[in-house]
Amino acid sequence: MNLDNSAINRENVTKEINELLLSYGFKTSNIYDRSCFDLLARKDDILIILKILVNVDSLTSTQAEELSKIAGTFLASPIIIGLKSKHNYLEEDVVYERHELPVITPQTLCNIIVNDIHPEIFAKRGGYYVKINGELLRQFREQKNLSLKELADMSHVSRETIYRYEQGNSQTYPETALMLEEVLQKPITLSINLLDVKNNNSLDKRIQEPKELIKLGYDIKSSKKTPFDAVSESTKNAKDITKLQEKLENKLDEIEKIRAEINKKTRENHILITNLEKGRNTRTLNNIANKTRDISSVTGYDALFVLENKQDKENIEEIPAIYTWEIKDMENIEDLLKLIKERKNEAE
């Protein structure tokens, strides 16, 4: 990914990234300049939410919190793309951090998408670090018939340091890891997979409208820094998810299997990207509908408008419009989903 330094700005970087993702099979959303995210991209089970900046220090804590919660709700990977901080340009294949969100350069993203090369180095206060795979380190040491002290002496570290590395995935300086790899003639560092969904944080339950959806069994989670008003998530699998999360903590050997089951259960919760009337005029509603349709298309989640005032329309720019009086007559979530499907089919 070659960016012309003379033409570097957020608009150009965003355009380049969008074209990169499209060329490698991702479906991308429109670009949302005034949102907590700029771009959504999906390929198979991978969903990425990107915020693109020139100076990564311009990311606010409010933006980061909202982005993190949107990613958690959508089971997506939040990534900040940046070119520099206040003092320096960011380096390729290094993962930085701002407000607990990962930050990488456009070229690092390109290496991940194009070559499936994930970075191994991460930056923290005090310098650059890598993570040691303790189990691999022990296996390779034993294969060479080296004791802890022998490997420590050859690598210019203490015996206690080698022991600590082998007991868990410890972090160390890249130079130390390189010395160990030269002695063992094997790679022992862990790559950082930014596309792996780990974030369980989700949008807050802040609002109590539309109460008709709440009555059906949805949690309404508001969003103030996105092109839509809220995300509605049914709670029918909440107990199942809680039990699975407890198993996830207690059975590390089953972690991948349980995580997949959690994701499946969560997706069955019928997340709805939700918009409200709020006294908005037709032009505003149409503008919101166009953005919401785009986001719905990329994420794979259904969208709807919940309207109070009776109008002669069942869709707003192909987004189903459901009236509060209709929801009041429904007995369960399946009735709502059936009506949404019918109105989607009518719009198509």
Rank of each mutant, 00 (worst) to 15 (best):
M330S: 15
Y128M: 08
N237E: 10
I17N: 05
G127P: 08
L47C: 00
Y128T: 02
R164A: 10
V231A: 13
I241M: 08
L50E: 13
G72L: 06
T282Y: 05
L216P: 02
N193W: 00
F74V: 04
N55R: 12
D116F: 07
E100T: 10
S23W: 06
E212H: 10
I132K: 02
A230V: 04
V130L: 02
E181M: 02
N88A: 08
E249C: 02
T28D: 01
T266N: 14
I80T: 02
N200F: 12
Y323Q: 06
S147F: 01
A71V: 08
L180S: 07
L184A: 04
H118E: 14
N193C: 06
L276Q: 12
P78G: 10
L59A: 07
Q139Y: 15
H270G: 05
K236V: 15
A238M: 06
I104K: 04
D45P: 00
K27G: 04
N133E: 05
K313Y: 11
E317C: 10
T62Q: 12
R159N: 13
K338Q: 15
K278R: 15
L146A: 04
T226P: 01
R206T: 13
E19C: 09
V13G: 07
R34T: 09
G300E: 09
K131D: 05
G126A: 05
T242D: 09
I112A: 11
S29N: 14
L53E: 04
R125N: 15
E233N: 02
A303W: 01
A71R: 11
Y218K: 01
K247E: 13
Q63L: 05
K236A: 13
L304V: 02
E331H: 14
K149Y: 05
I273M: 03
Y24S: 03
T292A: 08
E326W: 03
D57K: 12
F26Q: 01
N111Q: 13
D253S: 12
D116G: 06
R283H: 04
L22T: 13
L195N: 11
G134R: 00
D57C: 07
P78D: 05
S234W: 01
R267V: 00
R206C: 09
M179C: 07
K224R: 12
L146T: 01
N269A: 12
K257M: 11
I70S: 01
L178N: 14
I31M: 10
I220S: 08
L21M: 10
I271F: 11
I70G: 03
Y32P: 08
S222V: 08
D196E: 11
E308Q: 09
R125C: 06
G279S: 10
I132N: 03
L50Q: 13
E11K: 12
A123W: 06
L151V: 05
N309R: 15
E246T: 05
E317Y: 12
K131V: 09
D312M: 07
T105S: 07
S35N: 11
R267D: 09
L151R: 04
T28R: 05
I192P: 00
L252I: 10
S297Q: 15
D57T: 05
Q63Y: 08
R138Y: 14
Y301M: 03
L3I: 15
N315F: 13
E100A: 13
K131S: 12
V231H: 03
K186M: 12
F74E: 07
